[in-house]
Design a protein around this nucleic acid. Structure first.
Lengths: 209, 209
DNA sequence: CTAACGTTTGTCCAACCGGTCAAAATTTGC
DNA sequence: GCAAATTTTGACCGGTTGGACAAACGTTAG
């Protein structure tokens, strides 16, 4: 069985974490092909052969990183529950996603890089696990629509639009900062974004009355 | 002066176009560092040294491509005018942007790649030309808000959200198709997206009445 | 026809990159 | 303290890549 995790010493645990942290930094900034093992090794403070002692191949690092990423990345959507008030649920989903873009921009960019290149390594997971999860949540949302709790619309595209608008602040950060300029591009931009998105998703742009 | 375009023969014009078309295909699929001159040369149906006769360096191809891209890419925003009805103007801006994502996905991905990597080659343009244009259009939108034609909100983030939601269908195409599945991921997805986005931006998610 | 000019190709090179390997240094179990 | 196991390193290798170059080929104007 491959499933059984190999026994690891304390040093192996620590060094592997160190490498993954360094690799996240490098991969998210340069993409997979744009990153070299030497860069990662240097960022992790070790020599290239030393790094290759812990991860046999460059791709193994990327794969491990990607597997871990996906769990945390989809956590907010998993939390979307049928319990509370629908509009409140959606609002807090948007808020959580935006917080992830703010707190884990490297993870967001790593993911974006992978998708942009056609998701060669995670396509099966997108068509399997991810699709299942989204379909499930889309059904929940549809229930809310039938109950008249939120406006009728396409739940899948609704989810896409939440992903797009929130991740934009991580993936396109350089552009957002450049356009907002020095004064408005500071730390406050995420609060501005949160306020804007809340209004957009709840009320749209039509003037009141 | 660098500004004066070098004299070019008819063959040079044609071959350069051929190379740029091939490079767009390759760069948008693999990123800058992930693409090789050989790949581009093969896609353009010529030998590597021959390609290098028309573009001295790999970076020159990318730069030329990027410069051309930006004009066409920002055209929809430039068209956003103060003349017509504000809501109609915004709606048709969204529609135009979505059509660009549908008709020019390679250009969208090329741009996304560049921004994701920190926009090393076009940052000055983002902070200059792009910021100026967005600020100008944000002022127009603010005028509409003051006149009570659309709801009051942050015009910059509104523009970001339009960019994010529309380009998502080009940049994250693989994911969108995977999640929608074979039946709904076909050609109709852009029309579904258009309908959804129109509703989102105009009315939001609150149920009527 | 031919000289000048523009285009194409084969060959080559130096740098880089992913990965190997054996030997040295270090840590760990007893 | 010592042997076994683990970790680290320097040297090396084969393949790839961006790019140079000169020679060959084609085209065109006189």
């Amino acid at each position: 069985m491959e499933g059984s995790a190999p026994r690891r010493t304390r040093i192996q645990q620590e060094k592997r974490e160190l490498i993954l942290e360094a690799a996240l930094e490098v991969f998210s900034a340069n993409g997979f092909r744009g990153s070299t093992i030497d860069q990662i090794a240097e960022a992790a403070g070790m020599s290239k052969p030393n790094l290759l002692y812990y991860f046999r191949r460059k791709e193994d690092i990327h794969e491990t990183l990607m597997q871990r990423l996906l769990d945390t990345w989809l956590a907010p959507l998993r939390e979307l529950d049928d319990i509370g008030d629908p509009l409140t649920e959606l609002r807090s989903y948007i808020r959580r996603k935006l917080e992830m873009a703010r707190d884990f921009p490297r993870e967001s960019r790593l993911f974006a890089n992978e998708i942009l290149q056609g998701a060669p390594r995670i396509k099966p997971m997108l068509e399997g696990e991810l699709k299942t999860l989204v379909d499930e949540k889309a059904a929940v949302i549809k229930g809310w629509m039938r109950a008249g709790k939120i406006a009728r619309t396409d739940p899948w595209h609704l989810i896409f639009s939440i992903w797009a608008t929130t991740q934009h602040y991580a993936d396109f950060d350089v552009q957002v900062r450049a356009v907002l300029g020095a004064d408005r591009g500071g730390d406050g931009r995420f609060e501005d974004a949160a306020r804007f998105l809340e209004q957009l998703f709840l009320d749209g742009l039509k003037p009141k009355g």
